[in-house]
Simulated scan of single mutants.
Amino acid sequence: MRQIFLDTETTGLRVEDGNRLLEVAGVEMIDRKLSKAECHFHRFVNPGRDSEEGALNVHGLTTEFLADKPKFAQIVDDFLDFVKGSELIIHNAPFDVGYLNMELGKLGRGKIEDYVESITDTLKMAKDLWPGKRNSLDALCDRYDVDRSGRTLHGALIDCELLAEVYMAMTRGQDSLLIDFAPTAEENASNLERRNSSQPLIITQASAEELALHQKYLDALDKTVKGSCVWRELEPLATIEGNPQ
């Protein structure tokens, strides 16, 4: 499955006021594995107008900086080739989709929905998971312990990268964990060969630091499943088997 975490920056909040798109970025993930940086998409766009003061304070992209950047018409083909056939994952999707459809409409290129498989709104997902809570991207980063220390201003690319980490945490249920850690056929064969050999099994004990990291990881899983994750239930069994009474 090919998924694209997408974000835009604009000259203002309301597309109805003639505001335009000035930055667009997408981070690619295939089968829950993020692609290398060179596979991502990031373009600044000359919007042909100044940003509203409030928007400028958020993204910091001045008219002077954007003056020599391409118009949206000059990047549209590259952008559509990048997103074609994917699932778009966007935080507060109606906002970004509204701007993309406005820009595409001006060029007679239809709507973004015409080019992608589906669009997933992580803000709606978060509201379903955490009703009544703050569910901005910043709030979700804090909730899922995603490091955003490198983010001083809003930027489309860094917001995509943060959203990817948040989405992985939001969707990391027990089934996906088992899939993530399932051995390959080659690993199964290798494990079987080792079990059938006469060599003694070497057991390496986890260090105190590794145990602390393991507990932190389980704490995050507990938050995600709103209770005790399956590994918590297995820990007492492992202790009994490893230290028989």
Results as ranks from 00 to 15, higher is better:
N92E: 07
L13S: 03
D114H: 11
L213T: 07
L88V: 08
M125R: 10
A73R: 11
N57R: 13
P47G: 00
L6Y: 04
H154T: 01
L61D: 00
D145N: 12
R195N: 05
A169Q: 14
P94N: 07
S228T: 15
E9Q: 03
G26D: 08
D77Y: 06
G98E: 05
C160I: 05
E193F: 11
K111M: 11
I202V: 15
L137S: 09
Y144R: 05
G105S: 02
K33F: 08
F5A: 02
P183S: 00
F41Q: 07
A73D: 11
I30K: 07
Y115G: 11
R20V: 07
Y99L: 03
L201C: 09
D145T: 10
S207I: 02
N19Y: 00
V230L: 14
N101F: 03
D78C: 05
E165M: 12
I112M: 08
R32V: 00
R232Q: 14
E186P: 01
I203F: 15
R148E: 08
P131R: 10
D77M: 06
Q215P: 00
F41H: 04
L218N: 08
P244K: 09
A212Q: 15
N46R: 01
E165W: 02
R151P: 01
Y217C: 02
H40S: 12
K71R: 12
V15S: 07
S118Q: 13
A156F: 04
E165Q: 15
L163G: 02
D31F: 02
R232F: 06
T184R: 03
Q205C: 03
P244E: 09
N92C: 09
D128H: 14
D175E: 05
G26Y: 06
D114N: 14
G54Q: 08
G150A: 08
E233K: 11
R148N: 10
A182D: 06
R143S: 01
L192E: 07
Y167L: 04
S35A: 13
A139T: 03
E38N: 10
E210S: 13
V225I: 14
L56K: 12
K216Q: 14
R172E: 09
L80R: 08
A206P: 15
L13M: 13
D31S: 04
D128R: 13
R232H: 11
C39P: 02
A126T: 06
R109D: 04
E103R: 02
K216T: 14
T10A: 00
D142Q: 08
T152S: 12
G54M: 09
H214A: 15
